[in-house]
């Protein structure tokens, strides 16, 4: 199992940023998600976030909403998410689960942390869990030996950054812009400043996500962040592909373009 710590140590030794890819479990199919994520790792992703499909994804833009909706129609359950993590972890990437809070809450915090660790998962990203409500999850994650990643945003004042960073292990997720997930023409101008402000309060790596979709943007972000997170752009490739084979090829191509970007 590759830990986040190992990923960032390696990237630092190679003087580059880490590449983080996102895909929801069960999309385009249950096995297809493992195949696509594995292709992403083979082409250069260091970390994979497996999304837990949720009925009310209020932080996500149309692309991820669409993929998640299809996944739920495919009948994706938490057991499938765990199986996906297990399959992807075999590829050698550090594998996380990104999820809204309610599915963990309902499944049981200890049970979820334990099952994720047993599946070879190294942690979670929880975009709607605030530090105020995080106590039970931090305790369960610590017990299970998995990392907890929380988000900071351009709107976060320094006191909040301190508070959020204190809940994080592994890395801090910096949202590049005010908005929902989805590839954009340009990466948010606020991202660099946010990374700087976050670094002033934590020794953890800081990764930037939201709106990154091509090699040039990856290179731009890699110049100031420890990691570059890409989600919607991968999903777009899969949605636009006429069949599974060309989808895999397209995802592989994007991952290598991004991998070159973070090494520029």
């Amino acid at each position: 199992m590759t830990t986040l710590q190992a990923v960032f140590d390696k990237a630092r030794a190679e003087d580059r940023a880490a590449l983080v890819g996102y895909l929801p479990a069960g999309f385009p199919t249950k096995d297809g998600a493992v195949a696509a994520a594995t292709a992403m790792v083979e082409a250069g992703c260091d970390v994979i976030e497996i999304g837990l499909p949720y009925s009310d994804p209020l932080m996500d833009g149309p692309t991820i909403q669409d993929a998640v909706h299809r996944s739920l129609i495919n009948g994706t359950r938490i057991a499938d998410v765990m199986r996906t993590v297990e399959g992807v972890a075999k590829s050698g990437a550090a594998t996380l689960v990104m999820t809204y809070w309610n599915p963990i809450d309902r499944y049981g915090v200890e049970r979820f942390a334990r099952d994720l660790a047993n599946a070879g998962g190294v942690g979670t990203i929880t975009p709607d869990l605030t530090p105020e409500e995080s106590e039970p999850w931090l305790a369960a994650s610590k017990e299970a030996g998995i990392d907890t990643v929380f988000l900071v945003a351009p709107s976060s004042p320094d006191e909040r950054i301190v508070r959020v960073a204190a809940c994080c292990t592994g890395f801090v997720y910096a949202a590049s812009l005010m908005g929902v997930t989805g590839a954009r023409e340009t990466v948010g101008a606020a991202a660099e400043g946010l990374v700087k402000r976050t670094r002033a309060h934590t020794g953890l790596p800081v990764c930037v996500g939201l709106g990154v979709g091509n090699g040039a943007q990856a290179a731009e972000v890699a110049a100031y962040a420890d990691g570059v997170i890409v989600g919607s752009a991968f999903i777009r490739r899969l949605l636009d592909a006429p069949d599974e084979k060309s989808g895999l090829a397209a995802v592989r191509e994007l991952a290598s373009e991004l991998a070159r970007g973070v090494r520029r």
């Binding site: 932080m59 809070w101 309610n102 975009p127 709607d128 869990l129 605030t130 105020e132 409500e133 929380f150 988000l151 900071v152 945003a153 351009p154 709107s155 976060s156 004042p157 909040r160 959020v164 949202a175 005010m178």
Partner: peptide
């Protein structure tokens, strides 16, 4: 202070909205 009525309420939202 955290908006709790007993065990209910609170805030489960993206951090971006906390300042607002």
């Amino acid at each position: 202070a955290h908006g709790k009525f007993g065990r209910f309420g609170g805030r489960y939202v993206p951090e971006a909205l906390i300042p607002a």
